[in-house]
Amino acid sequence: MEAINWHTFFFYLFALVTCGFALAVVLAQNIVRMAFSLIVSLGASAGLFFLAGAGFVGAMQLMIYVGGTLVLLVFGVMLTAQGPFVSMRTRGGEWVLAAVVGGSLLAVLLQVAFRNPAWLPGAEQQRPLARVHTSRLDAQFILEARRADPKLLGTEVVIQAAGQQEAAPTAVYDPAAGRVVITIVPDKTTAAEVVQVINQPGSPLAQHFRARLPQGHLGLGALRPGDGGTVGLEAPRSQERPARLGLALLGARVDDPKRSGYLLPFEIVSVHLLVVLVGAAYLARARRRAATEAQREQAEQAREAEVLSARTSR
């Protein structure tokens, strides 16, 4: 029996909680129960976020959503929770209609989710270690690490071409420059061949990389020819490191320095949020007292009239 994949295990656990309580939100008649179920459902989905390697987003989900938005909702519930509104019945026909429509949508969506082969998990051994992004290769590749990793760069890499000894690409670590230089014979080695060599199951190079690529080093190293073609190297699947998103929000992309960070969108969203909150506060402010007084009087008169009519009918 194979070892339990804990990622899978926790995924199912959280998915079950999330879906179950979401269903509870739908089925509950009492508004307070609905709110509670929603809290649990969203909290569990935060667990799913952690599981998918998005720790930062998960933390935000907990803080903003569960901690803020839902508290707001609960306040709304409390402010409007008067007898008749706590649980309002919906007619059966509507339920049926909603179930039919929702069920068909779910069926469609699930079908879409599982029909796409790219979205399905591959077996770990079958997943390629390197992928070619260009077909042109120059005499020299430079294997560069985004983050200088002594474990990777402290080793000498040897690339063997399958069956072609004289044309074998070589990789030499240059400690002064902090990089690995892969040398191939021009016009005799194609990128596909290099990639094939690296990816060949059981090849010493592949083993070398697999052993030395640090955990969570997804696409970190890249074989980079002079003209910008890239041969990507991937480490085995593992957890993401949440700090990268935090840095990206501050403007620094550690996963791909060529791309810009998210500082400006982040700030825009912050300001947007602030404006919305001010607007919400304005909308929710107390109405003119006169109007409410008049309404209250009206309501009282109506109640008196009701009482009167009830007496007379009796």
């Binding site: 429509v101 068909s104 949508l105 469609v108 879409v112 029909r115």
Partner: peptide, 30 residues
């Protein structure tokens, strides 16, 4: 309001169905 939501969902489903008529599967795939 609630009817509108149903309309939206029905519309989405219809869209998916329509696309799958076109491409043979709901979302292209490879």
């Amino acid at each position: 309001l609630r009817q509108y939501v149903v309309f939206i969902v029905v519309g989405t489903v219809a869209l998916f169905v329509l696309v799958s008529f076109w491409t043979g599967s709901a979302i292209g795939g490879r």
